[in-house]
Computed example of a mutant assay.
Amino acid sequence: MGGRLERGRRYARAGQVLSLSLATSVVVAQVQGSRESPYRARIGIRAFTPAEWKRIEEALAGQALYAAKLLAGEMPTDVEAVLGELGLRLFPDTMRELSMDCTCPDWEVPCKHLAAACYLLAESFDEDPFKIFAWRGRSRDELLDRLRALRGSAAPVHRREDDVPALADCLDSFWVGEPVAPAPIQDGAGPADAVLDQLDPLPITVGDRPLVDLLRPAYRAMTAEEAP
């Protein structure tokens, strides 16, 4: 495949991939070849099932550092280790995990048009690693919303009123809580409220809502006021 891959790389560098669109399970590229009309190259992969995504999200949400990095917009470098423990892989290992076709007359797979699309697809993953999640069936927003929900659902601890001690009986310890070790806070730009996701869930609710959900708008508002 060396010759075709090299020609595909030249196609990619020459700007002959006119468009590249990614959706669940499939990437479609329009690649200009020697003919007037561009060829359509498609690269498919199996999306994870809802049950598999549930396991993945619970595993990521269950580890504070992984959840914090993802919620701050950063892809953990060893995220494959988490999926590996579940018997899954985010990135394909072999060509057998991909389905490819192109409208060009070349019967070899991958042809140079598919190779060009693969080069640009790999570059797009470098620029935005969350696209690999989208290819597997979860958009960035869907994944982060689900992680926030899972991290928040672990926080509430509901008590009956008769289980709460009287204030007069706990004045000496009222303001003392259990120490919480914060996860490392990453430098760089990220959502204003990402720091809230870098701590283990707080076992405090106001009404039926976790305290973190009530604090989130305030963090965003304070950042907006400081912005130039």
Rank of each mutant, 00 (worst) to 15 (best):
P92S: 05
A189N: 12
P92E: 06
R9G: 03
I132T: 12
S124A: 15
E178H: 10
D78M: 09
P201D: 03
V176K: 14
C111I: 08
A183R: 07
D128L: 10
L211P: 04
Y39R: 03
H158C: 09
R10L: 09
A122M: 01
S173N: 10
L83K: 07
D93S: 14
A166E: 13
A189P: 11
A149F: 09
A67I: 00
Q30T: 03
D145N: 15
R160V: 02
A181F: 04
R151L: 11
S124T: 06
T94P: 06
E58N: 09
I185Q: 10
W175M: 11
L98D: 08
F133A: 01
D126W: 02
G177D: 02
R55E: 15
P129A: 11
S99C: 00
G87Q: 05
D106F: 05
Y219H: 15
R151S: 03
T205L: 09
P50L: 04
F133H: 01
R136Y: 08
S37L: 15
P38N: 06
E57S: 06
L22R: 13
A192E: 05
Y66G: 00
A14D: 11
W135R: 09
L71N: 07
V195R: 14
S21N: 13
D213P: 04
L143V: 05
F133I: 05
C104I: 06
V212A: 15
G8N: 05
V17H: 01
Q63Y: 09
R13E: 04
E127Q: 14
Q63N: 13
E108R: 04
V206L: 13
L86Y: 10
V79R: 09
C118Q: 05
L60S: 03
P184G: 08
E225D: 14
L20W: 02
